[in-house]
Amino acid sequence: MGYHIAIMADSTSRWAEALREISGRLEEMPAEEGYPAYLPSRLSQFYERTGAYETLNGREGSVTVIGAVSPQGSDFSEPVTQNTRRFVRCFWGLDKSLAYARHYPAINWTMSYSEYLDDLAHFYETEVDAKFNEYRTEISALLKEEQSLMDIVRLIGSDVLPDDQKLVIEIARLIRVGFLQQNAYHAEDTYVPLNKQFRMMELILHVYRRTKELLAEHVALDAIRNSGVMELVIKVKYDIPNRQLERFDALTQQIDGMLDQLRTQKKEVL
């Protein structure tokens, strides 16, 4: 009928367990963890029914599957998870420790991926902004760097890091708390349109570039931390409503002003 349909299947693990039970009753030869050897082909038969179609009267329709896999003990190496990942091209890995920290949505940003990025690049460029993809890559590189820095911090503390690396950790915190984490109970933050997402990324990266310049001019990292800029950025998701994106310009100016002040203070001390 030309509808765009999303199917939420929760949970395919229970379905696979049913398959295992029937297979056991049929006395079939088990492969991994008692699942039958045809588990991958059954899974692919399910996931391959997705796609975009043209109907007989020329309308476009599509079927999208969002399948939830709930592996025992959050073990992503078990057969159902592994085989599902072979047939899907986008993977959102929910993370227990994020969930416990009430970081919602608890999507682990290093583990998750989408293979559709290249296909969607054009959409983002024309519909949102030409720089969307560039910012996205930059943000994920920052998160990746933070992760490897955190390995050091966990071992020997953050004191040994040079200031520019401490800044990376600070900016990654902005991304995590200000951008990735959303409040489902807040009227504005529960649904963030793409162009606001873009403005938020732009603001965070702007702050990163400005503060990096300040560090190069020997402004202390603590001064930047205490200036209140970081808090402003984190609050952006509540402070600027989804329909008043022009307020980002004023906010950027305000932040620039605060950072310029830090620089003049530094010069006065000298």
Partner: peptide, 25 residues
């Protein structure tokens, strides 16, 4: 992808009732 090939081989082997080896292959 050769892994998909090997899994097809596993499924086929299992339906013939052959004794599975490592990881059912």
């Amino acid at each position: 992808d050769m892994t998909a090939y090997a899994e097809a081989l596993r499924e086929f082997s299992s339906s013939k009732g052959e004794i599975p080896g490592r990881k059912g292959f």
